[in-house]
């Protein structure tokens, strides 16, 4: 994080609205990616980002260390999104890992819709993996930034993204074959 960004965070924490709006501009896309990763619904994700920003503004003084501002605001977004998801689906996702066969069966029936297939595969990933994927593919962020945003330790993301893509690849094998 450069010192300029640091100063912006500090000013926002101390109640500078302009600084906070600057943060909104530079940061709300990431938040959207996080929320979308969890919810896979754009309208809901947008609402979550909106709520997150208001909540962050109201409780900004709780952040003592400006360094941790991005991780903190991401956590808020994550919790909000998760709350919403839970409200939407009281039962947790019933099966984390469906067998490839069923996915394959599905793909046969809904062959035409690649898009929904990809989403189905994405929705079956663990939450953290989903967020990592959306952050990467929405905003093309480098690994270090994603790690900072999600509060991950240095180097952890590579494993997560690798695993996420691997899982999806295996699940989407037939579809991928059709592309090729």
């Amino acid at each position: 994080m450069d010192s300029n960004e640091h100063a912006t965070f500090r000013a926002a924490i101390q109640g500078d609205r302009d600084a906070f709006e600057m943060i909104i501009r530079s940061f709300s896309r990431n938040l959207f990616a996080i929320a979308y990763g969890i919810l896979q619904n754009r309208e809901e994700a947008e609402d979550v980002v909106q709520d997150t920003l208001v909540k962050a503004w109201k409780s900004r003084w709780r952040v003592r260390d400006p360094e941790k501002f991005p991780a903190w605001i991401s956590t808020i977004a994550r919790h909000r999104a998760r709350d919403l998801a839970r409200r939407r689906r009281p039962e947790p996702l019933p099966h984390d890992f469906e067998s490839t066969e069923t996915v394959a069966a599905k793909t046969e029936t809904e062959n035409a819709d690649l898009d929904s297939e990809v989403h189905a595969a994405l929705s079956q990933l663990p939450e953290l993996h989903r967020m990592a994927v959306t952050l990467r593919y929405f905003e093309e962020l480098d690994y270090a930034t994603i790690e900072r945003t999600l509060g991950l330790t240095n180097g952890a993301l590579r494993g997560i993204l690798g695993r996420a893509l691997g899982l999806m690849r295996r699940r989407l094998k037939p579809a991928l074959a059709s592309i090729a």
Partner: peptide, 24 residues
């Protein structure tokens, strides 16, 4: 292929251009 597919499908869903302004 997967990477390409993701770029084609998921990246579509990302926040639109007016998103920040709307948020602000």
């Amino acid at each position: 292929n997967m990477h390409k597919l993701l770029n084609e499908t998921i990246a579509d869903k990302k926040a639109d251009a007016g998103f920040e302004q709307r948020m602000v």
